[in-house]
Design a protein around this nucleic acid. Structure first.
Length: 411
RNA sequence: GCGAACGUAGCUCAGUUGGCAGAGCCCCGGUUUGUGGUACCGGUUGUCGUGGGUUCGAGCCCCAUCGUUCGCCCCA
């Protein structure tokens, strides 16, 4: 019988990988909680329209990457491909606009039917946050600085660049779109096949095409900046000024657009060159129209999400665990005492490994493999004197200690 | 969805024109029956991803399939 394998694009996460991912998530939580964000957990599946209506009818995520299914009641449901739509849906259905601003963060699995590659899986984990109800640039600055502090805290600031752009408000966006389409039509013969298609469906995406022929056309395309109206320009300048004052280094990238339709004004990405084609490690932006689209009031929003797997792949060192103490009974009649001592040490806050079987030598080998720094050896000889032997496993020194002095002796 | 490479022990990999499936690491035992790490000695580990085909004979050649990796696309 052939071995059963896991579904393509899904992975079992354990050991070093799990430790690193856990560290990414706990570091993220620690940082955003300082900014007053609270954790929210929304369902892993939603009605399909939560995503299809809001991420953009023509986006690739909606048209070909969603895991949609019908449940037994005939409802069309979808495994969430990203986090924001679900959080905003929850914001609306729970009536949270009574209590603005709302600051939420989440971590959990997302699903996209894509061709797997390094840093691109069909089930992957995102950590993200959403700030709802703040229209001013302060929100943008705060949220970006939070992202920056997060990667800094992971020790990745040298590997990662902040790229930022503004898509402006609806008026600016429409104006630019018109100008861009007009320009691209004039060069339609020079564009790649993909870009010709994008020209109809989602012309902004032509801007970040990697095809050489497209790049040449795009090089002379009208600049987004020139289409921004005064209000949008002022807004963006305020954001950049704020980042400057915090000493956050960024690169304005006028070609940066995002794949999901709900973005407006500020969009940003944290990008690395260490993961091949999957260089975007954290991305986000402002989505002022989304709450309304979802059936709520006119509430502004901004947020970001990061790929936990991608970030943890950048962590070079394994996450170190505290070294344990090994408690080792010698001979049958000492097992009971060993359990008592292990319990005592654990209650005193130590990490303790018991060895479950074998002679002293085997148990010592196990202790060593567990990276224990001390061994507490309990034999009948010692027990007769109400003592144990404590051995320092780094120096090899050992001494006898009275049982009631173990905890204070060990520190 | 498109293009390319790859799949051999738990891990990293070697395997010549098609001729008995290997190494290192890990693991287990011993040197040392109450003392680990270093050293030395010995040992186990396989449907060669899966299914077909060609051949006297296939890990190697052919076809299909599943999976992985890289690029495109997309995105976190």
């Amino acid at each position: 019988m052939a071995k059963i394998q896991n579904v393509r694009g899904t992975y079992d996460v354990y050991g070093e990988t799990k430790r690193k991912m856990k560290k990414v998530v706990s570091t993220g939580a620690e940082v955003v909680e300082k900014y007053g964000f609270e954790e929210i957990e929304t369902p892993i599946f939603e009605f399909t329209e939560v995503f299809s209506r809001n991420l953009g009818e023509t986006s690739d995520v909606v048209t070909k990457e969603m895991y949609c299914f019908q449940d037994r009641g005939g409802e069309s449901l979808t495994l969430r491909p990203e986090g924001t739509a679900g959080v905003v849906r929850s914001f609306v259905s729970e009536g949270m606009q009574q209590n603005l601003p709302v600051k939420l963060y989440y971590a959990g699995p997302m699903f996209r039917y894509e061709r797997p590659q390094k840093g691109r899986q069909r089930q992957f984990t995102q950590f993200g946050c959403e700030l709802l109800g703040v229209e001013t640039p302060q929100a943008d600055i705060e949220v970006i600085s939070m992202a920056y502090e997060f990667v800094e805290k992971l020790g990745l600031e040298g590997n990662v660049v902040v790229e930022i752009n503004s898509l402006g408000d609806q008026e600016s966006r429409d104006a630019y779109r018109t100008k861009l389409v007009e320009y691209l039509r004039g060069h339609i013969d020079e564009l790649s096949g993909d870009s010709k298609e994008r020209l109809e469906k989602n012309p902004l995406r032509v801007l970040d095409s990697k095809e050489e022929c497209d790049k040449e056309v795009v090089a002379n395309a009208p600049l987004y900046w020139d289409s921004l109206n005064e209000a949008s320009k002022n807004f963006f300048n305020e954001v950049l000024k704020g980042l400057d004052s915090l000493g956050i280094k960024y690169r304005v990238n006028n070609r940066l657009v995002r794949g999901l339709d709900y973005y407006s004004h500020t969009v940003f990405e944290l990008v690395t060159d260490k993961l091949g084609a999957q260089g975007t490690v954290l991305a986000g932006g402002r989505y002022d129209g989304l709450v309304e689209q979802m059936g709520g009031g006119a509430v502004a929003g901004i947020g970001w999400a990061c790929g936990v797997e991608r970030l943890s792949m950048l962590l070079e060192q394994d996450v170190s665990l505290p070294r344990p103490i090994a408690v080792i009974p010698v001979g049958e009649d000492t097992n009971g005492k060993a359990i008592e001592i292990a319990y005592l040490l654990r209650k005193a806050g130590y990490r303790v490994e018991q060895s479950y079987g074998g002679n002293l030598k085997k148990r010592m080998i196990k202790a060593n493999k567990a990276n224990a720094y001390k061994a507490v050896i309990i034999g009948s000889d010692e027990l007769a004197n109400n003592e144990v032997t404590i051995k320092d496993l780094d120096s090899g020194e050992q001494k006898n200690v009275a049982i009631n002095k173990i905890v204070e002796e060990i520190k």
